[in-house]
Design a protein around this nucleic acid. Structure first.
Lengths: 246, 246
DNA sequence: ACGAATCATGTAAATAATACACATTGCCCC
DNA sequence: GGGGCAATGTGTATTATTTACATGATTCGT
């Protein structure tokens, strides 16, 4: 022990033999997940909400959430919430941030993990409509229960950033879409106006759009071409998504 | 109630009167925070680790972490860990991601929130060295306890991305630094080689570096100028940090 | 005073971003 | 079926940004 040059794998003062015992001694807190589910319709970004079932938040809107089960992965809990409350599956989902303010829940300490989810409103018709489940304009939210407005704000910022770094927007569109729809999506989410020609140029130069050969229908003007996003090619290609800095 | 156009603020089937009761009924889990504390020394990115005090992880390295107290904010818990275990204060800290794999802790279900922290090794000399607390090269980590390698990987990726979007790197450097040091920092973190002239040009064009008028000392060649980062100007200026896409 | 090492600096070429206008297509309606 | 409407589809010139690259200047050490 005199040799101070070598750092021996020395036994610390108190080595803990029984990990189970240790964990049993830990304080515990209730954990929930809350899903910010975005959709896109009528050129507006929407978010899916229900009425809160808490008396203190009577009439206020709330995110879809639930308690995390005893040995459940957080991601699984979020997928479960989506499945149980909307009947939807196969939806983009991503953990965004934990919220832990001590008074964020009127019933006491509850820590929540915010998840952001993107889905195509048209493709997933709502099956269940308990508690007035439906879509709200993201830009005109009010009367939110808990800190759910903060959570939505955080997820919205996350979304604005992420659609410029990754091709997430396609999750909000039908499988086949026109370039105009795609541009409307970006304009709505980023709250900017874009030049149509440069927008097209940018997307075509990435070469991830497949021309389906089909045309829009039910429009009362010249129909645009319909495209699909080439997810396979995108996944394979190491070269990243070209940043979209509007 | 026949009028279906109006969505009345109707009482859902079961309105919950007692929120406290509700929360009491929730399952609870132990919550911890784990801090990935990065430093920079000898042109290498370092991370601060201790020996695990769990017998099953005998000899393995572990992040600095602790259980979250009953009504504690997660951020506060992470700052507390930093303070208690290193004596350091006033350090950049950011929540990165939750880890919740059911078997990530040998003692049973424990959910952890990973925090990423940046500090200047020179400025904060380690006071406490319990459990062989010291710095490790990020590139040569092995024998990690728990899922701490995964956590470090996630935080490292977060760091690589973030230093290109925000001026975080300066937290890892002394208050006064040479441009070479700054470049070494970026090169080490991003694992790339950069052109010196273009690097200087980029940083000077942002106009956030203040020439202190001082020069490097104790170098055995022509000393470089020392700069400070103009945090005030950066905070004020709405125009963002110019993306650094190396 | 000389060599070694690193600092400091500018320019030309290539690439990417922006601004901008007109012909084309399909629908609708008369 | 012809003309107006509304949106689609396309190219180029200009500007800004990024990249590649070489030389003289300064300080230290001997």
């Amino acid at each position: 022990m005199k040799n101070e040059k070598e750092l021996p794998v020395s036994r610390p003062m108190m080595m803990i033999e029984d990990a189970v015992d240790l964990v049993r001694s830990y304080p515990t807190v209730p954990l929930t997940v809350d899903c910010v589910i975005f959709g896109f319709e009528e050129n507006k970004l929407k978010v899916l909400l229900i009425r809160s079932d808490l008396e203190v938040y009577h009439g206020k809107w709330s995110l879809l959430g639930d308690v995390v089960h005893a040995t459940e992965e957080l991601d699984d809990a979020a997928y479960r919430v989506l499945q149980e409350r909307t009947g939807m599956n196969d939806v983009y989902l991503k953990q965004v941030q934990a919220f832990s303010a001590p008074n964020r829940h009127p019933g006491g300490r509850v820590v929540t993990l915010a998840y952001c989810s993107l889905l195509n409103i048209r493709h997933h018709e709502l099956q269940i409509t308990d508690n007035e489940l439906h879509w709200h304009n993201v830009r005109s939210l009010k009367d939110m229960a808990f800190d759910h407005k903060d959570i939505i704000d955080a997820c919205y910022k996350w979304l604005q950033k992420s659609i410029q770094e990754h091709p997430l927007g396609f999750n909000l569109l039908p499988e086949k879409f026109s370039l105009r729809e795609l541009q409307n999506l970006y304009e709505a989410i980023l709250n900017v106006e874009l030049d149509r020609r440069n927008f097209r140029k940018k997307f075509f130069s990435m070469d991830f759009l497949i021309d389906t050969g089909e045309l829009e229908e039910d429009v009362k003007h010249r129909p645009g071409k319909l495209y699909r996003f080439n997810f396979e090619k995108y996944e394979k290609s190491k070269r990243k998504w070209i940043g979209i800095d509007f």
